[in-house]
Design a binder for these strands. Structure first.
Lengths: 99, 99
DNA sequence: TTGCAATATAAAGATATTTGAATGTTTGAA
DNA sequence: TTCAAACATTCAAATATCTTTATATTGCAA
């Protein structure tokens, strides 16, 4: 097997990513996290959704390696770390700036 | 309200798109359709999945305005017509060529 | 070391998605 | 006008996802 192909992400894996992004809250969270990241209470303020709901969606994003959590005192800062997801989020950002 | 914003796609709509792409078969179909498009039996040959299943997923893609069907004799050719989806599919294509 | 603020986890019910199997429709050719 | 090929639709069962509510955990300050 071609070793170059080993690095390639499969359609199955890509679809997994899209499925995760296929929820408005998670998509908003991911886009909001682009750049410096945010802590949970910031996201809560932004979205006006109950905290457990946000934590649950963050847990899903974490489990898939899309975001990473880092403690800062009593807060926890989340960032987007998945390369493909970063590209997609930036694509959306550009789309929103257009028109 | 800003008339320019009216053209902007919302997170809700974008998430809808990702949800649709978040299924391996649909993602494969969309990527396979890029360019000249394909008819159902071509897709069937490509994916080795039962025909009704393919038609069902095509119906979902059609309902969301992601693909369009055009009859050609006894075949029906499907193409991707959704601008954002085309961009995303091309992004994936580029990713797969890399490494 | 007690209490609060920030975040995480669990469980249950409601809802949505996926699939397989059966059946319908339309087209072109004989 | 009948048949076969190509495609679409329907329905029900299995499975997965989402939301709510309640309860844990962790770190910091008093």
């Amino acid at each position: 097997m071609d070793i170059k192909k080993a690095k390639n992400i499969s359609f199955e894996e890509e679809a997994e990513i899209f499925k995760i992004l296929g929820h408005p809250m998670r998509l908003k969270i991911v886009c909001g996290l682009l750049g410096e990241g945010l802590c949970v209470s910031d996201i809560e303020d932004c979205l006006g959704e109950p905290q457990p709901k946000i934590s649950q969606h963050l847990a899903i994003l974490r489990a898939k390696g899309i975001v990473r959590a880092e403690r800062e005192g009593q807060n926890i800062r989340y960032r987007v770390v998945h390369p493909l997801v970063i590209k997609i989020a930036k694509l959306l950002e550009r789309e929103k700036l257009k028109d």
